[in-house]
Write a protein that binds this DNA or RNA. Sequence first.
DNA 1: AAATTTGTCTATTTACATTTC
DNA 2: GGAAATGTAAATAGACAAATT
Lengths: 451, 451
Amino acid sequence: MWKINAFDMSKPIYLAVADVIENDVLAGNLRSGERMPTHRKLADTIGVTPGTVNRIYQEAARRGLLTAVVGRGTFVTADAGRKSSIMDVTKEELAWDMGIARPLTVADPDLWPVIRKTLNKRRLLDLMRYSDPQGLPEHRAAGADWLTRFGLKVPPQNIVITAGAQNALFLICNSLLKAGERVATDNLTFTGMKAAAQRNGLRLEGVPMDSAGMLPDELDALCRRHTIKALYVSGRIQSPTNCEMPFTRRQELREVIRKHGLQLVENDSYGLLSRAPDRHLTALLPDESIYIAGLSKGFAAGLRVAYVAAPPGIARKIAQGVADTMLFVPTVNAEIASECLRSGLAEAAILTKRDMVARRVAMFRKIFENHVFECLDECMFAWLKLPPFWKGLDLETEAAKRNMRVMSSVRFAVGPTPPVEAVRVSLAGMSSAVDLRKALTSLERLVSKLV
Amino acid sequence: MWKINAFDMSKPIYLAVADVIENDVLAGNLRSGERMPTHRKLADTIGVTPGTVNRIYQEAARRGLLTAVVGRGTFVTADAGRKSSIMDVTKEELAWDMGIARPLTVADPDLWPVIRKTLNKRRLLDLMRYSDPQGLPEHRAAGADWLTRFGLKVPPQNIVITAGAQNALFLICNSLLKAGERVATDNLTFTGMKAAAQRNGLRLEGVPMDSAGMLPDELDALCRRHTIKALYVSGRIQSPTNCEMPFTRRQELREVIRKHGLQLVENDSYGLLSRAPDRHLTALLPDESIYIAGLSKGFAAGLRVAYVAAPPGIARKIAQGVADTMLFVPTVNAEIASECLRSGLAEAAILTKRDMVARRVAMFRKIFENHVFECLDECMFAWLKLPPFWKGLDLETEAAKRNMRVMSSVRFAVGPTPPVEAVRVSLAGMSSAVDLRKALTSLERLVSKLV
DNA sequence: AAATTTGTCTATTTACATTTC
DNA sequence: GGAAATGTAAATAGACAAATT
């Protein structure tokens, strides 16, 4: 077990020891999931009281290094020391990128006719003014209309326009929650949510899943242990595990949400390509949920527009968040997006993209037929379970040497328990299907240790 | 002096008492600048130790209600209980808006030719891809080139594209500073900075000014009392007081900044219209400063694009902030902005707008000739000192009854000391000069108590 | 100039809630 | 199912640093 040797006596003990822990995590002396000494044990060792050790561990937890469980002990967080972001600016791009679920921009529609139609001189001048942080009424109306596609009936005043789904997530974390508060998520969740939470000092609590999604009893137990403010879920298709919650599971979750008064936050950006786009939790809690409908997975990711539906008071707070972080979402972009929705261009683009995704998924299934994985015809990535001789992070490293990017399961992990060894393989990161086939083939050989 | 009557015994004392303070501030029982009981005094009164009172006051300080000064006491913050934002989404719009420094969009150039030229089908598809969170190299190059206008020579890798200056400020607060850290500002400063700091748990420390700007000795004294991480300043023209720092003052400040290793953050968005756009602090600290060049005050505010110049390591952190909060700034917008800069359209727009501002300033001078104010030919707002019978907040209220919006000095205040009674009068909030004349005339009569 | 006042911060104390065995 | 183990959180204690008188 981990033992502390020495710490910098010139600074406060709680900081000095937290620094030692941080260094040991980064140096690999403390491994994911490893158990730390108990408060009383470490207190004895370094000659302080348990209260001080609590402060040490809390400081380390704030830095994302440790997770404590009453009665069980304190553990090194599964993803300790790894930056969680959708995009890591320090990483170079690799030729064969199966890491990021980049929308398939090759299949994007030509926006020029839309631009030509909507942006005449006068309208353009109007759109260059300072605008309503919540979004122009006509853009919100277009958003409300679009949401009927997902089985939601919302008045335009409940809609907020944000600069994409990630922006919506960040604003929700920043405007609706306070540092130190707890938010429940699947114990494998979207990296963008992890990044948003970390930046706002929120504590994520990972809830165990089975093949039908988040376990209601586990969520209930969590809520009884702690005050949980909100529940973040992935929408129709769970990211990154590709599981879909059956109706009964969603019903059970609704009851737990109601029972504990959780604020539901549902990011259904990946549900855009789905053929059954109303199979989300929000459908069961339409008046209480915050529902995020990003467009980027469907078309025109570069526009950075998403629609958020939320109860009026909450919508107002998110809008104030938009005001304080960027004044308003560029109005031209919302105008172009609205016209795409209204004119049917969006729907057409989605159909095209859905086909393309299906073809790529088929390609994946074929190449990996001898492996264990989860994938869906309507989902841009596959969840590949690894054979016992592979660790996800090692595969990441080896793949990178061969110019391929994949993402290990630990990057999605929330909480102390190291997840199953798996990688998420994005089928939408590369524009060329020919290159993707090469990449997948090469990856398969690597996973099989044939190369 | 304030006395506490009772508090909710069911919650922790420190929260219960902080709540009482909050209510009393909102109810007007505690006034701006008022002195609170000392730690020991209040501790005696409610029967706890001074440490607990410290926690009470710190909690109230975190909520923006109190400011403590060692040796002197604890005081109600000047702007206690007022939301600080550029835009308050709960406020209705008034017909005669002289509150917000809205760019004069009437004078905006027609962007259609630029759009037509840059956004051909192929380029448009390219711009719809996922992009570099720092901004595309060609857009950063355009930004670097634009900054030569402000006397700055920066390589493109030091540039980050953000969704406007407010976004830049927010990202700097979120990506470079930690909750609880202290940032120095003028004791009257930009509301957008106050909002960004508040949302990120930063403590602003207001530094006294004289007619030549921030007082170097005061900044030095502040840095000796506390660990100050950064200094935020307004650029060429101080917002909201309209003072310009002479060269010697800027030199003195530079020395203090160097001495204490402060990170300078300079928001020069208002400097855009200036005829001498290189008279900023960054000119004296070009390699260490973070310099924000917003375009909105010049043209096309709706695009939401600003250029931030910062040392490489810092630029990278800000770019990671962009990635985690919105993935990237919409690339089409950066493209349009770049072309405006490159083609000279921007420069032309600025000249037009400068003339327009000068005319409006002249109008203000004339109408308010019998009043005390600070205004500059190149600045969009005036700083109107009020006669002794007016309080800024009362004028705000009375003006609102007459459908006019102005902003009282307390909204810009940082720290415990209530500022001089003054209002900021924006000359750019209304598109029609005719209406502006009516509004200013009406305001002048109100200030003179002729109506 | 020294004593006093005032706020700050780390570490301790203590009561307590949850989980494990 | 009760005792033990484990983490939590509010309030206390006390040394300290800065400003005032």
